[in-house]
């Protein structure tokens, strides 16, 4: 397979400001509604339920009332070097498009779940059951995203269909280029505290390319070399350390941004 040239085309990415995020869960719901994500009777079974955008609750473990909690929303990282792609025996997941979004084609997926094992972010979910919607609720399904069947893996697509709709709209107006705010995934649009910024990391005019230069920006498990396109911002030092499984006493290695003391 042809390897994508990441310098060419767009490289859509996200910056999530954890200091702003209240962990309210609106993004998760907007995502589920937008993408026809099915609902289990027992959504508390986190090994079986499906959340394209899952929120993790992390705490600094300090005693009351010095406890701090960070809610960490985790979509698919849309890695530049995705570990899930080379393991797929069915070419159901690829990283070959012009926008840097890692595809997942449900009709092609054979359900072997190698990609789930390969993904260090647990960003992929498997359909253990037939997609279920409470009686009558199949009426709110959106035709923009095809519902999945039992036995396939699904994951966040950065609402790729919104990119396609945005392009169609631009074409109608006779344009080929998209404005920054024309293509926004559902979670970004829904975030009530505007904690998520979205745009083309290759485009210096987009806010994201400015935000990732922020000294408090980091990515999850950067040392694995997966080149995630989802960045996080936080002034909380303990959170940034937690993002990359450092050993006790180990400091950040080269290749990562130097530690900055926050005030």
């Amino acid at each position: 397979m042809k390897k994508r040239d990441s310098a060419k085309g767009a490289r859509y990415g996200m910056v999530i400001d954890l200091d702003r995020c209240t962990g309210c869960g609106t993004c998760t719901i907007a995502c589920a509604a937008e993408n026809n994500v099915s609902v289990l009777y027992d959504e508390s079974d986190k090994t079986r339920n499906i959340n394209w955008l899952k929120i993790y609750m992390l705490t600094n473990g300090k005693a009351f009332p010095h406890t701090e909690v960070v809610y960490l929303p985790r979509p698919c990282m849309q890695c530049g070097n995705p570990p899930c792609v080379p393991v797929c025996p069915a070419t159901a997941t690829t990283n070959d498009s012009d926008d840097g979004i890692v595809s997942q084609i449900y009709t092609r997926c054979i359900g072997c779940r190698y990609c789930m094992a390969a993904c260090p972010y647990h960003a992929r979910d498997f359909n253990w059951f037939d997609p279920a919607f409470p009686k009558g609720m199949d009426r709110y399904l959106s035709p923009e995203v095809s519902p999945r069947m039992r036995g396939v893996v699904e994951k966040c697509s950065f609402c790729h269909h919104r990119l396609m709709s945005a392009k169609s709209k631009a074409y109608f107006e006779g344009r080929r280029d998209l404005r920054e705010d024309e293509y926004i995934p559902a979670c970004v649009e829904a975030c009530p505290t505007q904690a998520i910024t979205f745009g083309d990391l290759n485009n210096p005019k987009h806010r994201v390319s400015e935000l990732i230069k922020n000294p408090s920006a980091f990515r999850l498990l950067e040392r694995l070399g997966t080149e995630p396109k989802v960045y996080y911002l936080t002034t909380k030092d303990w959170m940034r350390r937690m993002a990359d499984n450092y050993l006790q006493g180990e400091s950040k290695k080269e290749g990562n941004r130097p530690e900055k003391k926050n005030g």
């Binding site: 498009s97 595809s103 084609i105 923009e144 095809s146």
Partner: peptide, 11 residues
């Protein structure tokens, strides 16, 4: 040919 990337035509 770049339009033959999977996500271009699949949703």
């Amino acid at each position: 040919e770049h339009n033959n990337a999977c996500l271009v035509c699949h949703k």
